[in-house]
Amino acid sequence: MQIFVKTATGKTITLEVEPSDTIENVKAKIQDKEGIPPDQQRLAFAGKQLEDGRTLSDYNIQKESTLHLALR
């Protein structure tokens, strides 16, 4: 499925993911596309910060959802 990640600079990244993917996997995909190390990424959805060990389906993130990326 496709999801979107909006960066602090307003850029939107499109990612191909599975509901079973962990947040860690998603951060690795962002690193592949943007070169941002996962340990510098903070992802949020619906106002909640997402934890590495959880999956997209844990957070009820569905196709075409938009996550927000902040850098630490």
Rank of each mutant, 00 (worst) to 15 (best):
D52T: 10
K33C: 03
T66R: 05
S65N: 15
D32C: 04
A28G: 04
D52V: 07
S20F: 14
I61N: 00
K29H: 13
T14Y: 13
T7L: 13
E16F: 08
A8T: 08
D21F: 13
G10S: 09
K63V: 09
E34D: 07
D21S: 07
R54N: 10
I61Y: 01
E64Q: 13
A28K: 05
I36M: 12
N60I: 05
L56C: 03
M1T: 04
E34Q: 04
L71Y: 12
G35H: 05
G35F: 11
A28T: 10
S65D: 12
P19R: 14
K48A: 10
I3M: 05
G47A: 08
Q2P: 15
V5E: 00
L50R: 00
R72N: 13
N25S: 07
K11H: 11
S65G: 06
Q41S: 04
G35E: 06
D32Q: 14
Q41H: 03
A46F: 07
T9I: 06
Q62P: 14
F4I: 08
T14F: 04
P37M: 09
Q62K: 15
D32R: 08
D39N: 08
K6A: 11
E18G: 11
I23A: 03
K6D: 07
T22G: 04
P38Q: 08
P38A: 10
V26D: 00
I13P: 00
R54Q: 08
K29C: 03
T12K: 13
L56N: 01
T9M: 12
Q49T: 04
D21I: 08
E51W: 04
D52E: 10
P37F: 07
G35P: 03
T66Y: 08
K6E: 12
E24P: 04
Q31H: 11
D39R: 09
R42E: 13
S65L: 08
L50Y: 01
R54F: 14
T55L: 08
E51H: 06
D39T: 05
D52A: 08
M1I: 13
Q31D: 11
Q49L: 15
A28Y: 14
D21Q: 07
K11L: 07
G10D: 14
S20Y: 14
D52I: 05
Q40L: 07
E16C: 04
I36N: 05
D32V: 08
P38W: 13
Q49P: 12
